[in-house]
Design a protein around this nucleic acid. Structure first.
Length: 331
DNA sequence: TGCCAGGCCCTCTTTAGGGCCTT
């Protein structure tokens, strides 16, 4: 028996009360791997690559949402009436987000990670979201986000969210991600301040009652999370206290140190090569990298024998990033 | 036109420097 399947078998025993990512994602590791084939998504704005249509602000045009029922392998488009209803709900819900609601996040006390990890019903509390951002560069003080993509690993309808973001500035690194100044500096592409309320509302719609959101990204601690915190703060918004972050970069390092694999480096590309994950689309586009990491994560956690609880223990809070920056500045 | 950071790890180390990862 392979190590991975053995761990999974152990985790399937309810009496163990251990919540693996496999359990989290619908009961089987196999179903976890099907997630990326589920085509249910929310797209606000995209490039021609995604076939999105433009429009004026507050008259945004979204693509019809289609659902690919897991396991059937066939795409089942909803009726036009259903699409309109859903679009209406989403739009109304977006409009209902206001400063008061955002302020409520800030009244909640930051969570105790150890306490959360020890919860016996962890899988019913945690929403795992793999995310990625594309930016105009590395220096978050001056640079801006040009694309953001998320995937709720629980799957289901609207389990992904992706949009281009108007940086309101020149995009000097189009050669990296293919996103040009012309693609994003348009009135129909939302600025970060436009997007934040929508994004927060979307994430809240994926949360479980009284639960937590576990954000996962590669190099999250050094790049994605500080960048997002900086952008939120620039728009007078704080990271919700029930958000936790996991960086897969140290997990890759841990795997490489453990030996037993042919991992050549700790990059996302090396991980996808190790696990023979075919990159479907242009690497360095946010949703492509999200899909890649979504497929890497379950394999990585099995190789490292990580349960959902142990993954939570390895997480950090937005406040940890902010506090470490304050300490550095005070020195 | 626009222009190179920051966190972590390793070691030839720890009062430092270089490499890797992210865009």
């Amino acid at each position: 028996m392979k190590t991975g399947s053995m761990i999974f078998s152990l985790l399937q025993v309810p009496r163990c009360r251990i919540h693996s990512l496999a359990n989290y994602c619908g009961g089987t590791f196999h179903s976890f791997n099907k997630i990326c084939r589920n085509n249910s998504s929310v797209r606000l704005f995209g490039s021609r690559i995604y076939g999105l249509q433009g429009g004026h602000r507050k008259k945004w045009t979204r693509r019809p949402i289609s659902t690919n029922t897991e396991g059937t392998g066939s795409t089942k488009s909803r009726s036009t009436k259903d699409e309109i209803l859903r679009e209406t709900i989403l739009t109304n819900a977006t409009l209902n987000v206001n400063k008061t609601q955002l302020g409520q996040f800030q009244e909640i006390q930051y969570c105790d990670i150890e306490e959360i990890a020890q919860n016996k019903d962890l899988s019913s509390l945690v929403t795992v979201i793999v995310f990625d951002i594309e930016t105009t560069g590395f220096k978050r003080e001056n640079e801006r986000i040009v694309e953001i993509a998320l995937r709720d690993l629980h799957g289901g309808e609207n389990s992904t969210f992706q949009t281009l973001v108007n940086p309101q500035r020149y995009v000097p690194n189009s050669h990296i991600h293919g996103i040009t100044t012309q693609m994003v500096n348009r009135p129909d592409v939302p600025r970060m301040e436009d997007l934040i309320p929508i994004l927060l509302h979307y994430v809240r719609s994926r949360e479980k009652p009284g639960g937590y959101v576990l954000w996962v990204a590669h190099n999250a601690r050094s790049f994605d999370v500080p960048f997002i915190i900086h952008e939120l703060r620039r728009c007078s918004t704080e990271v919700p206290p029930n958000w936790l972050f996991v960086d897969t970069l140290p997990l890759a390092r841990e795997l490489m140190k453990s030996g037993g694999t042919k991992l050549s480096s700790i990059s996302l590309a090396a991980l996808s090569e190790l696990y023979k994950i075919k990159v479907d689309g242009s690497a360095h586009r946010a949703m492509v990298d999200v899909n890649t990491l979504s497929l890497i994560l379950p394999k990585l956690t099995i190789d490292l024998k990580l349960t959902l609880s142990s993954l939570v223990k390895k997480s950090f809070r937005g406040s940890d990033i902010i506090n470490s920056k304050r300490k550095k500045n005070s020195n």
